[in-house]
Design a protein around this nucleic acid. Sequence first.
DNA 1: CCTTGTTTGGAAAAATCTTTTCACATGGGG
DNA 2: CCCCATGTGAAAAGATTTTTCCAAACAAGG
Lengths: 287, 287
Amino acid sequence: MTKPAPTVRELIRQHYSELTQSERKFAQALLENYPAAGLASITIVASSAEVSTPTVARMVQKLGFKGYPQFHQALRSELEAKGSGPTKRREKWAAEAPDSHLLNRFAQTVTRNIEQTFSNIDTGSFDAAVAQLADTEHQLYVVGGRITRSLADYAFTHFQAVRPKVTYLTASSATWPHYVLDMAAGDTLLLFDVRRYEANLERLAELAAERGVRLILITDQWASPIARVAHFSFNCWVEIPSAWDSNTSTMMLLEALIAATQEACWPETRDRYERLDALFDLTRLFR
Amino acid sequence: MTKPAPTVRELIRQHYSELTQSERKFAQALLENYPAAGLASITIVASSAEVSTPTVARMVQKLGFKGYPQFHQALRSELEAKGSGPTKRREKWAAEAPDSHLLNRFAQTVTRNIEQTFSNIDTGSFDAAVAQLADTEHQLYVVGGRITRSLADYAFTHFQAVRPKVTYLTASSATWPHYVLDMAAGDTLLLFDVRRYEANLERLAELAAERGVRLILITDQWASPIARVAHFSFNCWVEIPSAWDSNTSTMMLLEALIAATQEACWPETRDRYERLDALFDLTRLFR
DNA sequence: CCTTGTTTGGAAAAATCTTTTCACATGGGG
DNA sequence: CCCCATGTGAAAAGATTTTTCCAAACAAGG
């Protein structure tokens, strides 16, 4: 069984009575700004607590560390543990299944990907991209790669319901130039490109960018080369222990964009949904 | 007025397109364990990200720092500012965004859906369904509804890579009888049907069931009527505060099925992937 | 006022870390 | 197929940090 590894904070409390005056001065400074005040070099840390370097060195040894680097390392480990701590780790996902069941392992990995994806979104860019997607004055084009084509398709289906002037660039890249023909400055192109990145897509992005089209790129954590010319790019963590990549986080980000766009386009969108429903009812009558 | 001093996270996003491959590798490592992963010495940080020391040194200069110590200092300042801020640290998804931001609300709802979905999966059925999907003796058909068509398409793309004998039933339900013609007992039909449930799909399911085809249904929490004739059904929680349903949990379940099927079909699947890669390389040569 | 034991910080030596240089590797373009 | 541009890491050079040592300062008791 492994020992619980006491935190530096606990160690200080524990050894406080043995500490000398200067050492206590440093201990106070550290506790008042924990743990940041202990993460610099010993010289900086010492001078900002207004004690000498050897005082700090002696003290960390009293706490049981071999030297300052070990003390430093301990603080960092604590911080790291804390970083992954607040995220409520679900032990088991599928009810009565062991942790080792593929379902649980898969759920854990993908959840981690989702967390990473969302915590790395810049809300400013997100809002700006949504404003772009909600600009119904201009055309919105959607395109995806070999795998992400399905996501582009999903995006198209929903955006078409949310707003007018949406065009889906078909899977066959041979026809893409036809679409570029009609692209105008101010239009928006929503691209999906996860590895392995496709040269055709990149070329399309360049052509569109040259014509003043605003590019919104949804890519993976390693970033497609298109990121260079895109106005907004969003990175999705997609890696799973498998021969292919998981697009659950991609899907979730896409849906977030759709939800935000819908909100931005309200109430015109509500009107569209009502008309759409009416149309579905009509097709049912015909049958 | 002092400048807002961008965080290192922001700097990385901002300069991401200029970064080289190894630099990105380090950037990823840092983002995944932020900021602890950047608070050690440059040598330690570099080796734990599996890049060389100069790579890190060059990168921090690209970010605008004079050297590694300045970068280190910036990270510590951020940490310090965070620690002295409001102690009430609620779980946030998008960094530095208020809880009320759509992104965070959306993430919370969808995460709840995912939890519900996965904790309600019966692992026995899951394993049995996977065995069915991995049965390469028989044909596998995939079909989806108006919205879930994209998911069916995604499923098709991946299952086609994993195993032979996979057929995608096109969007146009008028042609579905043609496919039914060739369905045989023991074949598998993977159906997606979330509300609003489609009569065409139900009719197709009945026809297939009559012919001894095994039905695997992926539906929503309220269950499509097809569940009555399906051999396995999986319910995905899809409700979000919106006019449409979220299919992130559906996507995740689908990917879990693909991952499990891939594992069940190994090593034939590996062989297929290798051949697929070779074919892609060939098409690149043609261009 | 002296003595003794302890604490403290300056300074130098030792160790470590950071930066720069340079040669090799890699991959795209002619 | 070769060449060139760019990216990468090994290693040396330089800078900093960590540690050790020691003398000065200090407090308490005789």
